[in-house]
Design a protein around this nucleic acid. Structure first.
Lengths: 337, 337
DNA sequence: AAACATGATCTAACCGATTAACTAAATGGA
DNA sequence: TCCATTTAGTTAATCGGTTAGATCATGTTT
């Protein structure tokens, strides 16, 4: 069917090993034959067989992207989708193929490794939650280079990308305080690492501004649009309702805006809303959403870079921070109280 | 590292071939040894190596999902994203792994085959445009089972799924006519097959209702949210502006609504808007969007089924239609003219 | 009892690449 | 001139499976 190194060997009248070496530019083959081999390889349209390479333990030019959708609604969360999109483009620009491994429930890291390594992938970009000690233990002896997205944990074979945590939330609160807001709610607190980081930033900035953190204004919930809607309604009905709401994701913020609207409140006249993610659609919501841009392209670039670094020289995992920036649009305005 | 059939053979004191046969439940191995082998395989936690299987031409339990993003904005089109999500879940529920192959530019089908087959995938779900005769020729001699999404073309090894075309548009126009609309615009006409089908349905229903098709009301454009915004502004500024707009996608419809809003028009009081896709977020837009539901889960299920059918018995490709249904929300209302 | 079919297992070859180890020729220094 | 080194290439073994064909006890037929 496809052209193999044997076909080339026959054509050039040499052995398959010489072809194999020549194609990888080994100096053990003379320049003359090397050129001859490379030329005929090109002429015949030779494509190395990644399965054969993978079988023997070589590089397959394949990386796995692993992620999961915690809840039914989250399933449609654009953030992961846009991230996936960026990663798929970056991977293909580096001539890597993407192996996708998604599930509804986050699997233990050990299982992920077991699922993915038989396919001979060169590395893993892991977008799932790392929660248990077992997960951390598995990551410490990761069989192949692994990059963690949004989790702060490094090891000899695992790098991590930290982004959009504290500083993003701090910038948001700062922005709201500058607009004169005092009663600022936080919607979407939960046990996820990213949520905790965002809450931390919120709490820290509130304290710094001398504002009190009112328990009524902290909504514990998932991150999806439906939870946002519920949160919006809940906050709108409070006797002493907030003048601004910091939502943990854009999807959540969109839901919050829908909930506020249902209760007859206007954004941003009555309440200001800020999201997290800066999804593409957030520019087009009504009103357009002020949001913390996580810079997904930058994240994808960094993830790929980390992976390639680890594949080149095994210098161990690295921790990188990807900066985020607040994009101000029409969902935030001066406090009229 | 991992357990192989040789490990099992040693344990059971038999040959690797017997193990290989037994694990695939061949009757050439006696039931006694077969059970013994299967038991120890389970006990040792044996996992077949898909690379080795693929190398020899067997099944790898892997399918490729190929799609592309025609334009910068379309890149963030949720429709493909949600479709991808459904497919990834369906695949993993059938114990298949997904191999993703996305690019900015749609590659010729022949190239797709060349790119993907070396990885030993069992089948392909193709979400790119089939435009040239060369593409059709390539599909006719598809080397592995292929399912086309939204393109109407069958062959011995390629099935197709047709959905959300004519009927969806017809249902939309019917709905608008019932609400008393007469000046109905169509936004997002272009050379894509799906667009043509949708336009066909629109034109047919307009004629059936005795309404004239006014060239001013047909907007030729891409399908993204930015193009929608432009279309919305354009239509709003017409001297004799439409009372209803049929957009070819939800993203487009969201853009149209933003454009109308910019021009001071209210949806649905001044203009009704209908989209295509029924994205998850369309329920949460303001106002919530009336849209043709393409039923992505059904599409994903059908794609997988088609593929599995072709893999079982090679009975040739099949054409399947996936029904779509109009979901009426708040972006459509009675015509007040 | 010779001839033949049957069932259960094993041996050998292969898929397409890679690595280790080995051979033969050319170069070079003393 | 002889031994050591470099250069260019080879053969053999391996990765983890699969398939075709050989082998060899049984059981059945005549």
């Amino acid at each position: 069917m496809a052209i193999t190194i044997y076909d080339i060997a026959k054509e050039v009248k040499t052995s398959a090993v010489t072809v194999s070496l020549a194609l990888r530019n080994s100096k053990r083959v003379s320049l003359v034959t090397r050129n001859r081999i490379n030329d005929t390889a090109k002429r015949l349209g030779y494509q190395p067989n990644p399965l054969a390479r993978g079988l023997i333990g070589g590089r397959t030019k394949t990386i796995a992207f692993v992620f999961n959708f915690p809840s039914e609604h989250f399933a449609h969360d654009l953030s992961y989708m846009e991230l996936f999109h960026s990663i798929s483009l970056v991977a293909s620009s580096h001539d890597y193929k993407l192996f996708v491994h998604s599930s509804t429930v986050a699997k233990p890291v050990e299982e992920v490794f077991a699922d993915v390594t038989p396919y001979g992938v060169d590395g893993i970009i892991l977008g799932t939650n790392i929660t248990t000690d077992n997960d951390r233990k598995s990551l410490e002896k990761a069989p192949i280079p692994t990059v963690l997205l949004g989790r702060d944990f490094c090891a000899s074979n695992t790098s991590c990308l930290v982004y959009g945590g504290c500083e993003g939330a701090q910038a948001s609160v700062r922005h709201l305080v500058e607009l004169g807001h005092k009663r600022i709610a936080f919607a979407g607190k939960n046990r996820m690492e990213a949520s905790m980081r965002r809450y931390d930033g919120y709490a820290r900035s509130m304290r710094k501004a001398g504002l009190e953190i009112n328990d009524d204004l902290i909504i514990e919930s998932d991150w999806d649009i439906a939870a946002g809607e519920i949160a919006g309604v809940k906050l709108a009905r409070l006797a002493n309702r907030p003048t601004a709401i910091l939502a943990t994701t854009d999807m959540m913020a969109l839901g919050v805006m829908a909930g506020l609207k249902e209760e007859g409140l206007d954004v941003p006249k009555d309440v200001s809303v800020i999201g997290f993610d800066n999804l593409h659609i957030s520019r087009y919501s009504i009103p357009s959403l002020t949001s913390v841009d996580l810079q997904r392209k930058l994240i994808a670039d960094n993830a790929m870079e980390c992976l390639l670094d680890m594949l080149k020289e095994d210098g161990g995992g690295v921790r990188r921070e990807v900066p985020s920036s607040l994009v101000v649009r029409n969902s935030t305005a001066c406090c009229c109280d």
